[in-house]
Amino acid sequence: MTVAIETRGLTKRFGGLVAVDKVDLRAAAGETLGIIGVNGAGKTTLMNCICGLYRPDDGGDVFVGGERVTGQAPHVVAHRGIGRTFQVPRVFRRMSLIDNLLVPVLDRKAPDAELIGRAEAMLERMQLIDLRHNHAEELSGGQQKLLEMARMLMPDPPIVMLDEPFAGVHPVLCKFMIERIEETAHAGKAVLLISHDLTSIYRLSTRVIALNQGRIIAEGGVDDIRGNPAVIEAYLGT
């Protein structure tokens, strides 16, 4: 299996706080890497470093498909093939759902009609097709999460990162989203899945890393993590 995404010694400081501390992770195509940790463990910062929003400190590096992308602008990194969602949905509020999906593929050479067709197919898959001409701000919170997922998948990126996809989502929708994530992994994408909800992580992940205070405290298969005393300590301890 080829490594789709890799970080080496990834570090990010904010003032005196080390939010991400020498994180090495790798995920192969078709693999779902779960990233767990309590609030403030550095999960989202890690993601922001990977997609270029933050510049890593201390010579940490990010590789996409074996190529170094450290320090490149977010839009460049995005074109290398990383799609993502956000903890609190960040849809383009005053744009139609179709236009929302077109944003990540604006630079493609394909004709508009073809892209719109693809956007509609994607909305169909996310069961949002009837709302395609609505503005994104008119959607419910759960629907916005689905829209983000559709937007993420639109350019068909080899790597996707989902930040707390199940937070504040009701169980039925949760199940729907889990199925979509499984499909995504089966389609051969590397999935980075951030959550503090262990049940969904354990169900979806092929491997899991646990973060605490920016550092990886445990890594391995689901069963290794589940019984790992350091993880239990981080979750339940002081």
């Binding site: 602008a73 977010p74 074109h79 236009d99 944003v103």
Partner: peptide
């Protein structure tokens, strides 16, 4: 479309590949 996306959320647009 790129402009509107930038207006609504510049950071998100940038991470979606828009050269803001």
């Amino acid at each position: 479309k790129a402009l509107r996306a930038t207006r609504d959320d510049a950071d998100a647009a940038e991470m979606m590949g828009v050269n803001v």
